[in-house]
Simulated scan of single mutants.
Amino acid sequence: MSIKEAFSGNIIKDTVQIDMQNLKLKGDVIDIGVKNYGIIYKICRQNDDEVAVEYLMDEEKDLIEREYYHTAVLFFTLSPLSSAGKRRKLIKELYKYIRDCGEIIIWDINKTIGRLVDLRVEVLLSENETQTIKINNFNPIKQLSLSQVKKIINPYFEVTEEKQGKEIFFLRAKRKNTRRGKKKDESSIDCIEC
């Protein structure tokens, strides 16, 4: 008997919608993901033809510049990770690549221990374009929630916006400046609309 069969009564099987029509991403964007759905790239292209969007997988992290990006996006990236420790490590590492005044944006699933997730996510990109993706998590011992993610990011980011639905959540947070005593040069242009 498979895990999916054993927990068949505990499967969250649903369709959820994410409306990204009015989503604004600032400056240079890094898309951190387990899968590249192309959604973040499409959103950035709709907003600004000049913006740089990079998709990064773990083995490529040595190729990028520290404190370079204005925005980091994690689109269903944390839930596949096997532990809270790995999630903390990812956020701590990601912090190094975000500029002062930069932000992190996260969408992910609400998952409790013992529940399996089989979601169909419809992402509304514009009036005329919708993209559908599947989000599955059939590991009964994994869990993730908005409150857990807020605790993980708290040392590095300050939450500026959050939304929670039944099956998924959204979080936007601004990078904290942990370099004590260092004054920002007001004549430099390090960030967009700090």
Rank of each mutant, 00 (worst) to 15 (best):
A173T: 03
V34N: 11
D14E: 15
N154Q: 14
T71I: 03
N137Q: 09
I189Y: 11
K174G: 03
I32C: 00
N177D: 13
I11T: 13
N110M: 09
T15S: 14
D31K: 04
N22T: 14
Y95L: 08
E127H: 11
I98D: 03
V73P: 04
G38C: 05
N110W: 00
Y68S: 07
Q143D: 12
G33M: 10
Y69C: 06
E127A: 08
A6E: 15
E127D: 14
D31P: 03
L125R: 03
R172H: 09
D19R: 01
F76T: 00
E60H: 10
K89A: 15
E50F: 09
Y41F: 05
L81R: 09
L56A: 01
I43H: 01
K4A: 14
F169Q: 01
E167P: 00
V73I: 10
L78N: 07
E93P: 05
I141Y: 09
D14K: 14
L146N: 05
K86M: 08
K92E: 14
T160Y: 07
R99I: 13
L74C: 04
L90P: 02
I39G: 06
K61N: 01
S126E: 11
A173R: 06
I40T: 14
Y97R: 00
S126W: 06
R45N: 13
K151H: 08
N47F: 08
I153A: 04
V53G: 01
V51M: 10
Y41A: 06
E122Y: 01
R99D: 02
K142S: 12
A6G: 07
T130W: 01
K86Q: 12
K86Y: 01
C194V: 03
Y37A: 15
K150T: 13
R99M: 10
S8K: 15
L23A: 05
V123L: 09
I189K: 13
V117H: 01
F170R: 10
K4Q: 15
L25P: 00
K184V: 12
L78S: 04
E127K: 12
F169I: 04
E5D: 15
K151Q: 15
A6D: 14
I39Q: 00
K89V: 04
Q17D: 07
L144I: 12
K174W: 07
Y69R: 08
L171K: 06
D185Y: 11
I30W: 02
P140S: 08
S82M: 10
Q17R: 07
K4L: 14
D31S: 01
G85W: 05
R66S: 08
L90H: 00
Y41H: 14
K182A: 11
K183L: 12
S187A: 13
I109C: 07
T130F: 02
N22C: 02
I168V: 15
L63I: 10
L74F: 07
N139R: 08
E54Y: 04
I133C: 02
R179D: 12
L90A: 08
